[in-house]
């Protein structure tokens, strides 16, 4: 065990994996960090500081700075993977996923299927996402709901340094394209990370609080808000399950349904806007598969159906928070029969 930040866990995992497997390449915008500046290569180590030290250790053939073109990054990674490499692609902002959507959803996600299972496409697309850093409407979105809806893509969202290591290792070693979502506001959080090999299987949600009165299902940065809400409610004698989904595709349906069967109250907290979202997907799942267990309408705590505002105060109001989740739990429990 070693205590480190989530960003360090990601950096170290990439180092470890690239060292272990010479076949792995990584590419993205400015991942060498500082190339062409006065400080020279590695002066920065990527704008999020996630790829530091890679260039020095593995060289220009395996650590590739690309033009500012998401199509190029994902397309090249997919091509390299088809040709036998194992690729890690980095998108600096999830918001630009639209630029490379064809490469993602119509190429990468379909290769194995279209070629009758004769090829594979081992690409891990690391994507920085989420609001809370005052980065405005075009650099703050949570687009995981959109990608979760595409068959052929796995969607992963670590919330702790240990999970980042375990899930990223599984993603890199897997033979299918994985969308690996990293929340901007979680890079700085610290936690114990297991030493040595550590793989977490996809589709296994993490229970971070245990209770009997309500089930709070969430992912990404809202896991911490949900935990805060659960801790506050626990002081009033209300105990909640808090489920960190870890991966939204595959989805640990069993964990969600089991929990709701026990509590009868479901609160879904989702950072993306509410329509056709992860929240509505899970609400639909529970309504169709655990209907009899529900004791109150499902509460969805989501961002509003608007772009992410720039103003700090408005962004704060836009994002779901612990108070909102706590209120939703109380509302659900106060449902009048």
């Amino acid at each position: 065990m070693a205590k480190m930040m989530l960003r360090e866990a990601i950096n170290k995992t990439i180092h470890d994996e690239m060292e272990r497997d010479k076949n792995i390449v990584i590419m993205g915008e400015d991942i060498v960090g500082g190339m062409g500046t006065a400080g020279g290569p590695e002066a920065i180590g990527g704008i999020w500081g996630l790829t530091g030290g890679l260039y020095a250790k593995f060289g220009a053939n395996r650590v590739i700075d690309t033009p500012i073109s998401e199509s190029c990054i994902v397309g090249a990674a997919a091509g390299a993977a088809l040709a036998g490499k194992r690729a890690i692609a980095e998108l600096m902002f999830a918001d630009f996923v639209g630029v490379c959507l064809d490469q993602l959803y119509n190429q990468m996600a379909k290769f194995r299927y279209m070629f009758g299972g004769k090829t594979k496409c081992p690409v891990t697309v690391r994507i920085t996402y989420g609001a809370g850093m005052n980065a405005a409407a075009q650099h703050s979105q949570a687009v995981y709901s959109m990608l979760t809806s595409i068959p052929g893509l796995k969607v992963v969202m670590p919330t702790t340094p240990a999970d980042a290591k375990g899930l990223l290792t599984t993603a890199i070693r897997g033979d299918d394209p994985v969308m690996f979502f990293e929340h901007k506001t979680l890079y700085g959080i610290s936690g114990e990370v297991p030493d040595g090999e550590y793989l977490l299987p996809f589709g296994n949600a993490r229970m971070t609080r245990e209770g009997n009165h309500a089930s709070i299902v969430t992912c990404g940065q809202l896991v911490r808000a949900a935990e805060k809400a659960a801790d506050a409610l626990a002081k009033d004698g209300i105990s909640c399950d808090v489920i960190d989904l870890r991966t939204t595709s595959p989805l640990d349906e069993e964990c969600i349904l089991d929990s709701v069967e026990n509590t009868g109250h479901l609160i879904v907290a989702d950072e993306s806007p509410p329509r056709c979202s992860l929240a509505s997907d899970i609400a639909g799942l529970v309504a169709s598969k655990a209907f009899a267990a529900l004791k109150a309408p499902i509460e969805m705590v989501t961002a509003p159906h608007t772009p992410v505002p720039f103003a700090r105060e408005l962004e704060k109001a836009y994002l779901p928070n612990a108070a909102g989740i706590e209120a939703a739990v109380r509302r659900s429990l106060a449902y009048r029969h």
Binding site: T208, E210, A234, K235, D236, G237, I238, S239, R330, A334
Partner: peptide, 10 residues
């Protein structure tokens, strides 16, 4: 709902 504090530890 109001009761004694409970543990929600995993």
């Amino acid at each position: 709902a109001a009761g004694k504090p409970v543990s929600v530890a995993v």
